[in-house]
C-alpha cells in the first residue's frame, strides 16, 4: 500500500469512528444545552443500546439497521426514567453532585448489564459483512458506508426537528434562556425529559452502529467513548452542535492517525492532548461563546 492509500484509509476509518463520537457528543450537547448538566454515564446508554440491538438481532435475525429504531425507542424510555428519578432531583445542586450521580449510574448500568449478558466480549455479524465497495484506491466495507449515511440521516432529522417543529423550537428556547422560556409558557421540565431522551436515543443509535460494524462489545465499552464525547463537546464549545460534529471528526481522524503513527497506547492520549492545547489557547473551546 502506498502512502496515499494509507492516508486515505486512516481518513476513512476516522470518518467512521467519528460517526459514533458525533452521535454521542450531539446527544450530550443537546442535554447540556437544555438542562446544563453533563451525564458521565452517557456511554452506558451506548452500551445498553448495543446490547438491545445485539439481543434482538440474535432472537429475530432482523436486519440490524432496522433494529436501530427499536433500540432507540427502548433508550428513550430508559432516558426518561433516569432523567425523572435521578437527575431532576439534583438539578442545580452543583457540578460535583452530577459527576457523583453519574458514577453511581455507571456502576448500576455496567453491572446490571454484566448480570444479564455476562461481561465477556461479544460481537455480531452484519448481513453485509462480506461486501466491500471499491472507492478510488480503497476497498471500503459496505457497512462503513451505511453507518456514515445513517449518521447523516439521523443528524439531518435532528436538525429538522430542532428548527422546524414546535417542540424543537421550544427546546432551543429553553436552552437559550430557561427563565425566559418559562415566562412564555414553555414547560421546561418537559423539555428536560425530551432532551435527555433524545440524547439517549442518539447514544442507542451510536451503540447499534458500533455493533453492526463488527466491533466487539462488553458492559464496560461505554466509559471511554463517553468521556471522549464529552471532551469533544468541550473542544467544540459547550452547547454548539456544529462544534460537536467538527470535533467528532477531528477526534476520529486524529486518533486513528496517532494509533498508526505512534502506536495504540497514544490513541486515547492524543484526543486529550488536542483538547488541552485548544483549551490553553481558547478556554471556551473552538465554537464556544467568548468571555464568561
Amino acid at each position: 500500500m502506498g502512502e496515499l492509500e494509507i492516508f486515505l484509509q486512516i481518513l476513512f476509518w476516522g470518518l467512521y469512528a467519528g460517526c459514533i463520537y458525533i452521535l454521542l457528543a450531539t446527544g450530550l450537547n443537546l442535554i447540556f444545552g437544555v438542562m446544563k448538566i453533563v451525564n458521565f454515564a452517557h456511554g452506558e446508554f451506548l452500551m445498553v443500546g448495543a446490547y438491545v440491538t445485539a439481543t434482538v438481532f440474535a432472537l429475530t435475525g432482523l436486519n440490524p439497521y432496522v433494529i436501530i429504531l427499536f433500540s432507540m425507542v427502548v433508550l428513550v424510555a430508559i432516558g426518561a426514567a433516569v432523567e425523572r428519578f435521578c437527575f431532576r432531583p439534583i438539578l442545580g445542586t452543583g457540578k460535583l453532585n452530577e459527576i457523583f450521580l453519574s458514577l453511581g449510574l455507571i456502576y448500576l448500568f455496567q453491572n446490571l448489564a454484566a448480570l444479564i449478558w455476562t461481561d465477556k466480549w461479544q460481537s455480531i455479524q452484519s448481513p453485509y459483512a462480506s461486501i466491500s465497495i471499491p472507492i478510488g484506491p480503497l476497498n471500503v466495507p459496505l457497512d462503513y458506508i451505511i453507518i456514515i449515511v445513517v449518521t447523516a440521516i439521523i443528524l439531518a432529522g435532528l436538525h429538522l426537528f430542532l428548527k422546524r417543529s414546535r417542540t424543537g423550537r421550544a427546546m432551543r428556547a429553553t436552552s437559550q434562556n430557561r427563565k425566559g422560556a418559562m415566562l412564555v409558557g414553555i414547560d421546561v421540565e418537559r423539555m428536560d425529559v425530551f432532551s435527555f431522551s433524545i440524547g439517549c436515543a442518539l447514544a442507542a443509535a451510536a451503540g447499534t452502529l458500533w455493533v453492526v460494524s463488527g466491533q466487539v462489545f462488553n458492559p464496560y465499552m461505554g466509559s471511554i467513548p463517553a468521556v471522549k464525547a464529552f471532551a469533544i463537546i468541550i473542544l467544540g464549545g459547550l452547547g454548539s452542535i456544529p462544534g460537536a460534529i467538527i470535533g467528532g471528526l477531528i477526534y476520529g481522524v486524529a486518533e486513528n492517525g496517532a494509533a498508526f503513527l505512534l502506536g495504540g497506547m497514544w490513541k486515547d492520549a492524543v484526543s486529550f492532548i488536542i483538547l488541552i492545547v485548544v483549551l490553553v489557547v481558547r478556554p471556551t473551546g473552538l465554537f464556544g461563546e467568548s468571555g464568561e
Binding site: V38, A231, G263, A269, F272, L279
Partner: peptide, 25 residues
C-alpha cells in the same frame, strides 16, 4: 487555572491518560 468546572474536569482527566501513555512509551 484559567479553566472552570467541566473544562477543568476534562483536562485533569486527560492528564491521567497522557501520563499513562508517557509511562508506557
Amino acid at each position: 487555572v484559567r479553566l472552570k468546572e467541566w473544562f477543568l474536569a476534562m483536562v485533569t482527566f486527560g492528564f491521567a491518560i497522557i501520563v499513562q501513555a508517557i509511562t508506557v512509551s
